[in-house]
Design a protein around this nucleic acid. Structure first.
Lengths: 359, 359
DNA sequence: TTGTAAGCGTTATCAC
DNA sequence: GTGATAACGCTTACAA
């Protein structure tokens, strides 16, 4: 530039210089007063008056450059349209806002490249930290994570010994809750509509489903298992494929979007829910309660995980030297109409593992 | 501070100085090469090598301070959980990302104070522009809007002559499409579940509903009109109140969340949809197609409005001297199962006003 | 308490 | 083409 220092910013808006000149004090005094530190009564009065007169608003960028922090925190999730992320985001936003920061939301579409590029871009210091909820985890992720110059908290499973702050749940156990509930209600031909097996949650839920069947001594019938995407349309299509070749008396779905799709497929095909086929979703989102019949769903504590992730992030920003921490939120089952009605039970049905919710 | 200028940034990360020193050139040369402007072949080589060796990433804040722009654009909506805003946000994000910027999302909860404070905070220059979709518009809004030092585009109705870029739809006409469709199908006892009347959309939809009834010569029966909130739970409760005192043969709902709530209330009360009661929502969100039966819904072109708003904003950022612009997106009706089945029509039913969508 | 001036990390100007 | 340096707007160490 080389332009002479003026009293107004480039675009004509007032700066500390404007205020200082108007108040007849130095920019240092003006800045101090505006930040509420120091200043004689008279100086405070003059500066406040001058600032009000010119409508001074501090420039956040200049302040960030000086302070080496932006007051922004990023959240990166796969799909902003999935209500489970909306719930998580709301919880995060509450914590972040309470600390005087703002939340920047990224939708990654689950793309590895998009997520790692986001991680690397952190190096430009545009945000003070990031919460990442990846559905696939690669070596690239891990490398970018440990090298990140900015604090990152991961929501979801991560390699056992990755030195990264991490909030997880036990979705294997979550699936077990669903299967136990259905078996306890006398269901035996339990189908499973999952998301992609090459995702972390997809793999965990598949393992959980098979382990639960084993525990109950139920044979695996591959005709009762179908895989799609973690979306409504894919879930519905997957359920339709499954129903075309098998006759389940219950469907466990890997998330609520899939469950809603499965419910639609069942009702459209003339099946009664829950009389003919019970349905249990996962994530226990708002969507589950909007359906008719209301969907039973395994809560994976998404709001709670979000809240904790935000707290981990804030404490790490405050003290980057903390050791890596790991927290776990237990799943729980919300039983609703979609799986409540009784099939004549061959034996007395077991107690609910977890809380029940009424409509 | 007063500390001597070092070659590393405060937190030990490389800066242009680091790269320049390592390459044996001035920071000016280093900066030029890093920005791809000028530099001899030899200089370019040395600087690139040095940057790669130390893992240099430019500091976005410093760059913003110098460039007087942040590359961030804000979007402020009432409720990030409402799928209509998800659709709008996706459309905006696409345009914004294509311009190399990022989107910062604010949820205002529809609070006037929250929105005006957001508008005033724009003065701190943290974003290059904002898209605001208010559901209530006050004088405070208008004052903050016209005084904003940063470009703002409003999605939604605004005072006729407010000198602000604005993208709107005609929700009165939207409601008319719904009523015409239902009347054409032989429905006469048409109920209306609206959001708050002190909101811009609530007032417009109420006016549209009454005008449409008038046009068809149908008496206003206040027992068939109920008001709640633009949310699922409130919509369901409002529909329950309405059903407790009246026997509609159709329900027009002021948005899809309300429609989903009304559908739930109807089914839970044992009414058949659409045989007994037809349901038409508004916004034509993903939710409408997830329901069983699928919901007819009036599209207000939210994605299109988002896209256009983003384009208006980008052009205004590029040229702030443009005159205020106003764009309008027409509504259209998507007829689905929730209003399709025939009631014995007393006269031949009219043609659809708009496109039909199949399941 | 106050003012001077350095410095945050970058880009741009200007003289060589 | 290159280097020295000012400038973006702010906070703060230091000396007065």
């Amino acid at each position: 530039m080389g332009r002479k220092r003026l009293q107004e910013s480039t675009d004509g808006r007032p700066t500390v210089h404007t205020v200082a000149a108007r108040a007849g004090v130095s920019i240092a005094s003006a800045s101090r007063v505006l930040n509420g530190v120091g200043g004689s009564a008279e100086t405070v009065r003059k500066v406040r008056a001058a600032a009000a007169e010119v409508g001074y608003v501090p420039n956040a960028i200049a302040r960030s450059l000086q302070a080496q922090r932006t007051g922004l925190v990023a959240l990166a999730v796969e799909d902003i349209g999935n209500p489970v992320y909306v719930a998580m985001m709301r919880a995060i936003e509450a914590v972040v806002a309470a600390s005087g920061r703002q939340l920047l939301v990224h939708a990654t579409g689950g793309q590895i490249a998009s997520e790692t590029s986001l991680l690397r871009r952190l190096a430009n210091r545009y945000v003070d930290g990031m919460i990442l909820s990846p559905i696939r985890v690669t070596d690239d992720h891990l490398a970018a994570l440990v090298q990140s110059p900015v604090p990152v908290v991961v929501v979801g499973q991560l390699g056992a010994d990755a030195p990264v702050d991490n909030v997880r749940t036990d979705s294997r156990h979550g699936v077990a809750l669903a299967v136990d509930h259905l078996v306890g209600a006398g269901r035996r031909r339990i189908g499973f509509v999952n998301g992609p097996l090459d995702t972390v949650p997809g793999a965990a839920r598949d393992a959980g489903f098979r382990a639960a069947l084993d525990r109950h001594g139920i044979d695996h019938d591959e005709a009762l298992v179908e895989v799609g995407d973690f979306q409504y349309a894919a879930g519905r299509a997957a359920a339709e494929r499954l129903l075309a070749r098998a006759r389940p008396d219950a469907l466990v779905c890997a998330n609520d979007l899939i469950a809603v799709g499965a419910l639609h497929a069942l009702l459209a095909a003339g099946h009664r829910v829950p009389e003919d086929v019970a349905v249990v979703g996962m994530d226990d989102t708002e969507l589950a309660q909007m359906m008719f019949p209301q969907l039973s769903s395994v809560s994976l504590g998404s709001a709670e995980r979000g809240r904790r992730a935000a707290e981990l992030l804030l404490t790490r920003i405050a003290d980057p030297s903390l050791p890596p921490r790991r927290e776990q939120v237990p799943p729980s089952l919300a039983v609703r109409a979609s799986s409540r009605a009784a099939v004549p039970a061959p034996r007395p049905s077991t107690e609910e593992v977890s809380r029940e919710r009424e409509e």
